[in-house]
Design a protein around this nucleic acid. Sequence first.
DNA 1: TATTGTTATACTCTATAACTATA
DNA 2: TATAGTTATAGAGTATAACAATA
Lengths: 167, 167
Amino acid sequence: METTTTVSSSGINMRPFTASLPMALLQAREATMRLFRPMLAEYDLTEQQWRVLRALAAAKAPISISEVAKQTFLLAPSLSRMVVNLADRGLIERSPAATDQRKSQLALSPAGIDLVRTVGPSSEAAYSRIEDEFGAGRLAALLVELQDLALLDIGAGTTPANSAEKG
Amino acid sequence: METTTTVSSSGINMRPFTASLPMALLQAREATMRLFRPMLAEYDLTEQQWRVLRALAAAKAPISISEVAKQTFLLAPSLSRMVVNLADRGLIERSPAATDQRKSQLALSPAGIDLVRTVGPSSEAAYSRIEDEFGAGRLAALLVELQDLALLDIGAGTTPANSAEKG
DNA sequence: TATTGTTATACTCTATAACTATA
DNA sequence: TATAGTTATAGAGTATAACAATA
């Protein structure tokens, strides 16, 4: 298959900017986050904090900080401070792990569960809108493709492992 | 079509964390950026700076700062400082717009063109790896779906318009 | 010695508002 | 009055290293 490229005024022969995969992923994420952001702002949650709450809500049992870091793509130092913040706000609870004194186990507090339950319906409503406009089948298929792409995990030597959204 | 949900230990009935569209987009972006990041680090470029250079490389003529902001999903204050930085490094050039004294026109400098030309092949090599592993046809189809999703642009009332990647 | 998590530090980017200068 | 861009300011997150406690 031939790769489409364009030649700009600078004479650079390269994949068009808009056809760049990272750019397309960014744009798509931007478009969808526009629907979710007002909801999070209403509850004074950053996207990152929401990811932590979501990970805990999905967990079948309390999970360690490092496990949350892996699932949410957050670095340990960032997460460490978020955990303090969320615990201070009474949204999560931490307890020492029985088996390993170094580990903390994290779980949603009752207030955290309430919050996720409150935000949940708005989140699902946003999904419904996307499904209506984009097509539920297409959306489901897209999710499969995205998950497959993420699974490629083509080792890239140097792996900062993070920074999906710094700026 | 029925929506799959899971009930976690907290009893919250919600779309599984991994099946969340923003999360899937983030994971996919993370996976692909792992391939590109070492390349950018080598030239002391942040992802945002690279987006600016790419936008300028793709432009057929010098474009205004606000146009770059729109294309790169960067806010004016962030971009304003980046422009100073990139100009100081001699990678871009700014000139007053002939028609409107308020506007600056941005373009790659010869050094900037060189840089993009140098990085370009590594970038294309990364693409080739993705195409090989994921399938060129699948990748092309995925790009179309992502672009369509981004175009939905379902108005969401409050629109901070940005922050796709703060943290 | 290795691992879990915290603290320290520097930096980048987001986000809002206030400001300058053009239009 | 509105627009283009800058500056000011506050705050969140990234990233690396150094550290403490535990394994």
